[in-house]
């Protein structure tokens, strides 16, 4: 469907349902869609599963959503950071579930979801606790672990610029998970710094084509 440009971040996330799996872009603060997360906090959806590389920094963004008690489960690679006190507290009190995923699997499982791949065999984690109980297979003499896709009901991502066709470009390492998450959710909402007219982004440099993007808000 053609991309829409809601008036506000609140309007862009108004229909996120309780119990949704929400893919949230960003690697630490770089690429984090802060305005969309703040709008999700105001919107009130609860019992959420959040997929992000981390589990919130300091007291803003994802950490604020966690602090509101709205997140049932976090799927991430690296929850423990010097400023992850909100997650740390909830986890130690048993008030939040954690699925720890090696970072490459996190990216590839979403890539698989976005590309229609049913599952894949991967060498990461073989012989480690993170592969316990998972199916393995030897292929050409190497052992691989079976990994399943991570699909989102919603993706909230940060990008640098959009055009009116919903094509996105990112800036430097703030790109990180954005392009992968944009392929892997039913509803994809991008927060950008500016929206430009069609033709103002060279088609050769588009990173996320507009087909993957449902809504764009400027922040």
């Amino acid at each position: 469907m053609k991309v829409r440009f809601p008036e506000s971040a609140d309007e862009a996330v108004a229909d996120v349902a309780d119990g949704s799996t929400v893919l949230v872009g960003g690697f630490g603060p770089a690429g984090m869609p802060y305005a969309l997360i703040d709008a999700l906090i105001r919107q009130g959806a609860t019992d959420l599963t959040i997929v992000n590389n981390n589990a919130g920094n300091a007291d803003t963004g994802l950490a604020a959503l966690l602090a509101e008690g709205r997140v049932r489960k976090v799927i991430c690679s690296f929850p423990r950071q010097h400023d992850s006190w909100v997650f740390d507290g909830l986890y130690r009190e048993g008030r939040i579930e954690l699925e720890l995923v090696p970072q490459g699997n996190l990216a590839e499982r979403m890539r698989a979801a976005g590309a229609g791949i049913g599952a894949f065999f991967c060498p990461t984690g073989v012989g480690t606790p993170l592969a316990e109980g998972k199916e393995t297979r030897e292929i050409d003499g190497r052992t691989y672990v079976l990994e399943y896709p991570i699909h989102g009901d919603v993706a909230l991502i940060g990008a640098h610029r959009a055009d009116r066709a919903g094509n996105l470009v990112y800036r430097k390492t703030a790109r990180n998970f954005g392009p992968v998450m944009a392929t892997a959710a039913d509803l994809v909402v991008a927060e950008v710094r500016e929206v430009v007219e069609i033709g103002a982004i060279d088609p050769e440099v588009v990173v996320t084509p507009g087909i993957f993007v449902d809504r764009v808000v400027v922040s």
Partner: peptide
């Protein structure tokens, strides 16, 4: 609190 990041991917890759 466990955290793995990219360590397992780097180790095997």
């Amino acid at each position: 609190i466990p955290a793995v990041g990219g360590a397992m991917d780097l180790a095997i890759g």
